[in-house]
Amino acid sequence: MLRVTGLSAHYGRAHILDGVALEVGPGEVVVLLGRNGAGKSTTLKAIMGLVPPSAGSLRFLGREIAGREPFEIARLGLGYVPEERRIFHDLTVMENLEVGRRPAPAGMRPWTPERLFALFPGLGALRDRPGGRMSGGEQQMLTIARTLMGNPRLILLDEPSEGLAPVVVERMAEALRALKADGLSILLSEQNLHFARQVGDRATIIEKGRIRWSGAIPELMAAEAVREQYLSV
């Protein structure tokens, strides 16, 4: 579904990504693991076209998307949920959802606010609340819901568990499992291994802009040395 090969990116002269390769299949949840500053967010941004890749190929649904503009990439069915959530603060919950709305591809059951309120029960009561006056957890639900309104085939999810209370993280994991059951592919960037193993099928470890390890989640749980080397703080 999404195949990334040889992806490199720079901020000024600093090399941030160096030949990143990864793959996400249909209905698969791949977790991009790594410490702070390893290049997880930049990988997602480069796929989305928000950071211009300096080299590499990005193939999504059989089409090359490297060098395209973010709005075109989004319209091809790739959703992006940023780490900072970036809710439109002056817009209400319903208006935030409206900004994300795009027609669904043929054969897909389109997301509606009602369906999303069923998935994220907290949001339904806040329809007319401005985005700026919501808690962090509510904003995190809203930012995912907003991206889903575009009826994406795959979403890039940047550290959704960050800064959330444990009980909210549990609810988030539940929602992601439901989305996966629905057939959505997810590329999830995470530092929280506990959260990652609840939702992920496969893991890819990135450090200093390079992919260091890839494999199934159970393999990662078995490989203590790998976890020790790349993930322990």
């Binding site: 709005f71 989004a74 940023p82 439109f88 002056d90 817009l91 900004v99």
Partner: peptide
């Protein structure tokens, strides 16, 4: 209107609006 909502969203955060498929 939808147009107005999109304009207000792009006013607040152009990049995020683009990532949601809005042609700025």
């Amino acid at each position: 209107t939808r147009w107005g909502t999109l304009v207000r969203a792009a006013t607040a955060d152009r990049e995020m609006a683009a990532a949601l498929g809005v042609n700025q």
